[in-house]
Write a protein that binds this DNA or RNA. Structure first.
Length: 945
RNA sequence: GGGCGAUUAGCUCAGUGGUAGAGCACUACAUUGACAUUGUAGGGGUCACAAGUUCGAACCUUGUAUCGCCCACCA
């Protein structure tokens, strides 16, 4: 016998072990030979990650899909794995070193530091996997991958080298978003623009050659005064009359004391500020474009930490050296004012770029970085969605995707970090071993000041071969550029025989998303052509939040379409569907965040209410195209739903409801049982179709309604008289049907509530099931008996009507009363005969009789063609009954007017579809009948007076 | 500046052309018989506003208002 309540804390580990011992989630487990494949590559959580509500939602939804398809007999793989998360992980380990007072990474050196990170990963990384297991995620855990593992690293190198060879990866010196805390470049989408309160200051730059048209100076406005030290020009709009005669003149830059030209460019807006813009090409993206167009020098002002540098080009005074950019700002303001060039300030809200990880202001910096030609790679990825080979659900996200993809910028993929895939590029100085034609001797030729030669290859040995071919002679690898230069200097100082060209590897690593972009195929063994790749690629669906479209979805599309080809050489999409799950917010709609402290910890909810309750809550709240506002009290509500199912099973157990493997639903005789089987069929269709459409709320909602409002509220209640009666055949059929329905319920709910349903599945079997519920066959609809449905729905209507009147008339529930039926048809009489016990029990009735007219002093209800009377003489005030009937009649009249008005409207009859007209006609007839009967009843009550 | 979404019961939200719904909350009643993590009954809505299309609009169109988000720009 089951306990009164479900003990999630005890059951969950036990069921988890059951699955684990059976390898229940191994790729293809439970599937027949030759079954259709279904696969999902999990969005790899960061190795530093811990389960938050977004993970809980996303992985619950994926698990629903996975469990559903596994039960449908497909060959299913849910591929798990983790992301090495470059910046995040390096940050965690560096912080840990600092806390333990250990040497920092620079003191430790690169190799040692990377070893440290691996150690950290082995010890503390991947906690989230245990949390996902607790969530019930049915991944094939034996196939866990990591973006830095050997196979995936090989895929990364392969892709890099191929794209480089195709010219789709290149190195370029241009302005990038520089994070001064992590001291690395980051990509555009890792920058968040935020509005902050700031100021706009005005400075005057004096004209070098004296006044023109009486103008002695040009006034510029800036929000970043410190950058004036790096100005290369002042730009004005060519059509701006005020400055027309100043174009080409030189102004003197205060403090730096450099002379810079006034140039004409379309960029300045004459309406804004003074119409004159200072151009700092090395520290501003717009200015950079202007400078390049006009051949204005780019003058760097800062080092990697965004501290001021002093160079011959920038001519910045020595006392600025090493100053933080914000301190330099204050100093510039002070000095400009002292020099008499300050022309005022105003408050202004300015939008500033922040690093999404570091939270500091990003500095545009002029550096060499590696780029992917995203524009070229985006083309097939755009076409794929345009042509419907990959669909977004909900579809509106396709706009976001197109908008970004069509305006895509080169993707900066190099990061100045140590934790990640090191870029497989080696450099050497320009030069060669050449044969001296006259002496026939090998001659060494090199230039150490020039642009380095690049050798891109998957391995060091291959790079050496490339280099050796390039130089026509021996090469060797050294630590870095400095080491190489030292060797050349040594050689120049004291030449020696058998010189060998030194080459050094690029110190940078790749953007984490570069490896994530390969995830759907790299995890399956690519570039090897493995069986798994053949079976499970392309994957079926990717499920993620909309904010990951750019970071991940777009990159997977580009990479997959480029590298995965069908027999015709056409690119293959990594998945046919991109499901954008909603964001989880707190109950007031605010984004959950650590800083706000409004986060809800899914693990705490699981502790309190059980995993199934959390999963069911998330599923039923996951409406397409709308955020989930999660109120923890909802979880309690769905915990109650689990308890309801648990106790329904318990009730069944008490009544010897037993699973019968030979049960045949089509052979069931009683209308009650045929009705519940009909309702079950409808619910199966609803649950199934809505999972297929990713409408998780409708799917779980349909299951919820069936279990609680149909099966528990009515079927089990209507079975009570059967179980209490002495018709053994009826009892046996009821038991077998109830057992069957419960089994189907367990299956329907399994994707949503895997633990409890697996437990009940095992518990309710008299003999072992022979299979786990997670491998059981997904239900299909069978019995459809509308006559049975009509009959039982009539019965339910009758009971509800009686209960309602009793309640309105304040009849004590304990008082049983006789029921008198007037004007019943033969069918109604027969139904009443069949269901006497049920009506008596559920409506608190004692004795049903038929009469030609309502007994005096009755409350009367119109149910179908019959009038059902409760003799209430002496029990109630009949003014109440008159009021009740008058209210009902008024309601009928109102509906009658609406419907008859419609039908009287010629245009309606002419234009509306036949079905709608018929429906309205039927309804009108029904209302007419009811109106007549209720009027009669009312007259009768009044006549009792 | 461009785009997307939202506005329906006290709260959270379903509902895409044909009788306005659910859960929670609320009110009243009911407890030794599966379940009080329960049951029964009930109250509660000018579907943001305006105009239009239509026989018919919460739903389609246009506009307005408010809120939220994304992208771009802001010297």
């Amino acid at each position: 016998m089951l306990d009164k309540n479900y003990d999630a804390a005890a059951v969950e580990p036990r069921i988890a072990k059951l699955w684990d011992d059976a390898d229940a989630f191994a790729a293809g487990a439970g599937a027949k030979e030759g079954a259709e494949s279904y696969s999902i590559a999990i969005p790899p959580p960061n190795v530093t990650g811990s389960l938050h509500m977004g993970h809980a939602l996303n992985n619950t939804l994926q698990d629903i899909l996975i469990r559903f398809e596994r039960m449908r007999g497909k060959n299913v793989l849910w591929q798990p794995g983790m992301d090495h998360a470059g910046i995040a992980t390096q940050m965690v380990v560096e912080r840990q070193l600092a806390e333990r007072n250990e040497p920092d990474r620079h003191a430790m050196g690169r190799q040692k530091f990377v070893e440290k990170v691996w150690e950290w990963k082995e010890e503390s990384g991947g906690l989230i996997f245990n949390q996902l297991k607790r969530l019930g995620a049915s991944c094939d855990w034996s196939r866990e991958r990591f973006t830095m593992d050997e196979g995936l690293s090989d895929a990364v190198l392969d892709v890099f080298v191929k794209l480089y060879d195709e010219g789709l990866i290149y190195k370029d010196k241009r302005l990038v978003n520089w994070d001064p805390v992590f001291q690395t470049a980051i990509s555009d989408i890792e920058v968040e623009q935020k509005d902050v309160d700031g100021h706009m200051w005005s400075f005057a730059y004096p004209l070098v050659d004296g006044p023109v048209d009486g103008i002695e100076e040009i006034v510029i406005a800036t929000t970043r005064p410190e950058t004036m030290l790096g100005d290369g020009a002042v730009a004005v709009h060519p059509s701006d009359e005020r400055y027309k005669n100043l174009i080409g003149k030189m102004v003197r830059l205060p403090i730096a004391e450099r002379e810079i030209p006034i140039i004409a460019d379309e960029y300045p807006d004459p309406e804004f500020g003074t119409g004159a813009v200072k151009i700092t090409g090395a520290h501003d993206f717009n200015d950079y474009e202007v400078a390049r167009r006009n051949n204005i020098p780019l003058i760097p002002l800062m080092d990697g930490e965004a501290k001021m540098i002093v160079t011959p080009e920038n001519n910045v005074p020595e006392h600025y050296k090493g100053l933080d950019r914000f301190d330099a700002r204050k100093l510039v303001l002070k000095e400009v004012e002292e020099l008499g060039f300050y022309r005022g300030v105003e408050d202004k809200v300015i939008s500033q770029p922040f690093g999404d990880r570091s939270g500091v202001v990003i500095e545009p910096m002029l550096t060499d970085q590696w780029y992917v030609d995203a524009k070229t790679m985006a083309e097939p990825a755009i076409a794929s969605v345009k042509e419907g080979r990959t669909k977004f659900v909900p579809q509106m996200w396709e706009n976001t995707y197109f908008n970004w993809m069509e305006n895509i910028q080169p993707w900066c993929i190099s990061r100045q970090l140590w934790w990640g895939h090191r870029i497989p590029a080696w450099y050497g100085v320009p030069g060669s071993f050449a044969k001296d034609e006259q002496t026939e001797k090998t001659k060494l030729d090199f230039s150490i000041g020039g642009k380095p030669v690049v050798f891109v290859a998957k391995a060091e040995s291959a790079a050496c071969t490339l280099a050796s071919t390039h130089y026509s002679g021996a090469v060797h690898v050294v630590e870095n550029e400095q080491a190489a230069l030292r060797q050349f200097i040594d050689y120049v100082n004291e030449p020696y025989p058998n010189f060998s060209f030194p080459i050094w590897r690029d110190p940078d690593v790749l953007d984490t998303w570069f490896s994530s972009g390969l995830w759907p195929f790299s995890t399956l063994g690519w570039p090897e052509n493995t069986d798994e790749l053949k079976t499970y690629f392309p994957t079926s669906v990717v499920s993620t939040a909309f904010d990951i479209i750019f970071f991940w979805v777009a990159r997977m599309m580009m990479m997959s379409l480029h590298f995965m080809k069908d027999e015709d050489g056409k690119g293959i999409e990594p998945f046919h569907t991109v499901f954008m799950h909603p964001l989880v917010r707190d109950k007031d709609g605010a984004k959950m965040s650590k800083s706000k402290g409004n986060g809800i910890d899914p693990l705490e909810l699981m502790d309190e209410y059980g995993t199934d309750s959390l999963r069911f809550t998330l599923a039923i709240m996951a409406v397409q195209g709308r955020d989930v506002k999660l109120d923890p009290t909802r979880v309690a509500g769905y915990r109650n739903f689990g308890t309801k199912l648990w106790n329904a099973t318990r009730f069944a157990e008490m009544n010897e409801v037993k699973h019968d493997p030979d049960f045949n639903p089509d052979a069931v005789k009683s209308q009650l049982n045929r009705w519940i089987l009909t309702e079950l069929s409808k619910s199966i269709v609803e649950v199934t179709e809505n999972i297929e459409k990713y409408r998780f709320n409708d799917s779980s909602g349909a299951a919820y309604k069936f279990v609680w409002n149909t099966f528990c509220d009515w079927h089990l209640e209507l079975l009570k008289p059967v179980f209490a009666g002495d018709d053994e055949a009826a009892k046996a059929e009821a038991q077998a049907t109830a057992a069957y329905v419960l089994d189907q319920i367990y299956k329907l709910l399994h994707p949503f509530m895997p633990f409890m349903t697996e437990e009940l599945w095992a518990e309710t079997a008299t003999t072992p099931r022979g299979e786990l519920l997670c491998h059981a066959k997904w239900p299909t609809p069978n019995v459809r008996d509308e006559a049975a449905a009509d009959e039982i729905n009539w019965l339910i209507g009758l009971v509800q009507e009686i209960r309602s009147v009793r309640s309105e008339m304040n009849i004590k529930p304990s008082l049983k009363m006789p029921l008198v039926v007037v004007g019943a048809s033969a069918e109604t009489k027969a139904r009443l005969e069949t269901h006497t016990a049920a009506v008596e029990r559920l409506a608190r009735i004692e004795g049903i009789s038929h009469a030609d007219s309502a007994p005096e002093g009755s409350a009367q209800m119109v149910v179908g063609e019959a009038t059902v009377c409760l003799p209430l003489k002496g029990l109630v005030d009949f003014a109440d009954e008159i009021a009740r009937l008058e209210k009902e009649l008024a309601g009928i009249e109102k509906d009658f007017k609406i419907v008859s008005g419609k039908l009287a409207n010629e245009k309606f009859v002419a234009n509306a579809p036949e079905a709608i007209i018929t429906e309205n006609r039927e309804r009108l007839a029904e209302l007419e009948g009811k109106r007549e009967k209720v009027s009669e009843a009312l007259e009768r009550v009044k006549s009792f007076g």
